[in-house]
């Protein structure tokens, strides 16, 4: 039986008075890809950012309820530790423009003041770039700037940067919306590989992407988790009319 790695219990998130995530209860199994979808403003990104405590960084943002990582409340952990365990990749590839490809991969260690011997750094860089299927493409240009890479490669570099910290969970906020179809396809293939070692939670507007890459899908609407089910079930026979209307494009 699959064990639960992330669990939200009556999770609510607010921006000031604005109640954006309402009483979300969800259990995310380990080594699964979970797609989170819903119309703009439904609270999916806020929920995602709540998982690794990034929501609280926004002025006026508050949260109620619990996010559990391996049965421990993330609010009771040090935020840096939470973000080491739960990495995040954003919509637009954001490698550090002035750092080399090599230094981008180990940026998490540098920024956290963790000093590593050169051999360890080399091993982490090769391992992380291999995990994101980028090693063969960049192994001879590790000293070049991250911005030298194409959009798709930059996004994989950002995933490598997250992977370098050996997280358990990776959060993706619309990770391919700024990429061309070929790069999108490469990143999607990568998801299938990454789930062998990590649990992936992906916010996406692209329903076909959700259908292609995820094991389970969560549909959010107006801050509520309307439906959460196995993706195949969700895309063939959704239980809730709102889900059906959304995925078939009949949403008004």
């Amino acid at each position: 039986m699959e064990s639960t790695i992330v669990k939200s219990v009556d999770y609510n998130a607010y921006f000031g008075e604005n109640h954006v995530v309402k009483n979300v209860n969800i259990e995310i199994p380990r080594n699964n890809v979970i797609a989170v979808m819903g119309p703009s403003g439904c609270g999916k990104t806020t929920f995602l950012r709540g998982i690794n405590r990034m929501h609280e960084l926004i002025p006026g943002a508050t949260a109620r309820g619990k996010i559990m990582l391996n049965n421990e409340d993330v609010m009771e952990m040090h935020p840096i530790f939470v973000r080491l365990k739960i990495g995040m990749v954003f919509q637009r590839p954001n490698p550090f423009p002035n750092l080399s490809i090599y230094d981008n991969v180990i940026a998490g260690y540098k920024l956290n003041g963790i000093k590593l011997p050169k051999a360890d750094k080399d091993r982490i860089v090769e391992h992380s770039l291999t995990r994101v299927a980028l090693w063969k493409e960049v192994k001879d240009s590790l000293t070049k700037k991250g911005s030298f890479l194409s959009g798709g490669q930059q996004q994989r570099l950002c995933i490598a940067r997250a992977v370098a910290m050996e997280p358990e969970v990776l959060l993706f906020d619309e990770p391919t919306s700024a990429l061309d179809p070929i790069s999108t396809s490469t990143v999607e293939e990568l998801f299938h590989e990454l789930k062998k070692n990590y649990t992936l939670i992906i916010v996406t507007h692209n329903m076909q992407q959700a259908a292609r890459v995820s094991d389970k899908t969560a549909f959010f609407y107006m801050g509520e988790l309307v439906e959460y089910d196995v993706t195949k079930q969700m895309f063939t026979n959704p239980k809730d009319t709102r889900t059906q209307n959304y995925i078939t494009g009949r949403f008004s």
Partner: peptide
């Protein structure tokens, strides 16, 4: 159109 749900069925 990549139909889903009731459309796919």
């Amino acid at each position: 159109y990549c139909p889903v749900a009731v459309d796919l069925r």
